[in-house]
């Protein structure tokens, strides 16, 4: 019994210690930014690595998701004689939920896992230690630019996802199923509010950007410096990020529609 209590206590201390370390890492990433001359170039490099290189998977996924939502939506709306409402259905689904959430999940799989593996490998091959011994702070030189790269990339990727998904819906609804293009766009325009729908979706993506990048950076930085340790870090990055995104999406949605 005493042993079980002791094990429980040790587990609790370990969990709190991990949260503490993750908090210190986030603090370092936010506040220990490099000076503008060096930092700007490093952040741009990371926007390329995390954002631009994720574009293909984001755009292809967005296109197919938009097309599927349009196809499903059209057939369901037709039953009620409301097929002209396809534009609003797609735009609201994408801007409020699918855009930020799917982008964040894809970002976690594509960029998050790459970040965790890269930093874990840098640790395992003494690159971070040698940086420290050269009097260069890894939090400032490695972690901070990657954090800001993710923070900036995620909302931009979400906007691109939204545009491509709506275009996919347009292709299916208008070009394939023969809906009137004017009705598609004008109904969408009259139903979608800039602040309540578009901006709230972007706010969500900013939160997801912080959380997914933070989880990936912490998992890489705290990885056991072995091949198994790095494999675990990348797996945990994807699992924890996905769960955090889905959980936070509910919380943020509840806050945004005023039910909380």
């Amino acid at each position: 019994m005493i042993n079980q209590v002791e094990a429980l206590g040790r587990l609790g201390i370990d969990v709190i210690r991990k949260y503490g370390k993750a908090g210190i890492l986030l603090y370092g990433a936010i506040f220990r930014v490099p000076n503008f001359r060096k930092g700007f170039a490093l952040v741009v490099q990371q926007i390329f690595a995390e954002g631009v290189l994720s574009l293909l998977i984001i755009m292809v996924s967005a296109l197919f998701i938009g097309m599927v939502v349009a196809l499903q939506g059209y057939h369901t709306l037709s039953k009620f004689g409301a097929s002209q409402q396809l534009g609003p259905l797609v735009a609201l689904s994408v801007a409020r939920e699918l855009g930020p959430v799917v982008t964040a999940l894809l970002f976690a799989g594509r960029a998050g896992s790459a970040l965790a593996a890269e930093i874990g490998l840098m640790k395992a091959t003494d690159q971070l230690s040698s940086m420290e011994m050269m009097a260069v702070d890894p939090l400032q030189r490695v972690i901070a630019p990657r954090f800001w790269g993710g923070f900036i990339s995620m909302p931009l990727l979400t906007i691109i996802f939204n545009i491509v998904a709506i275009y996919g819906a347009y292709l299916v609804g208008v070009k394939w199923l023969g809906m009137d293009a004017g009705a598609f766009w004008s109904n969408m325009q009259s139903s979608v509010e800039f602040h309540a729908d578009i901006l709230n979706g972007i706010y969500k993506s900013v939160v997801f950007g912080v959380v997914v990048t933070w989880i990936a950076l912490y998992q890489g930085y705290d990885a056991v410096p072995t091949s198994a340790g790095i494999a675990n870090a990348t797996t945990r990055t994807v699992v924890y990020s996905s769960l955090a995104v889905l959980g936070l999406d509910f919380v943020l949605t509840a806050m945004m529609i005023g039910e909380w």
Partner: peptide, 30 residues
């Protein structure tokens, strides 16, 4: 640490930088 140099067992070279840029790294930083 700016007055110390350390050679790690694995070398600790930055794998994304060329030999030239690895050696230039501390000079560019400091």
């Amino acid at each position: 640490r700016k007055r110390m140099g350390m050679l790690f067992q694995t070398g600790g070279l930055f794998t994304h930088l060329s030999v030239f840029e690895n050696v230039a790294f501390p000079l560019r930083e400091h």
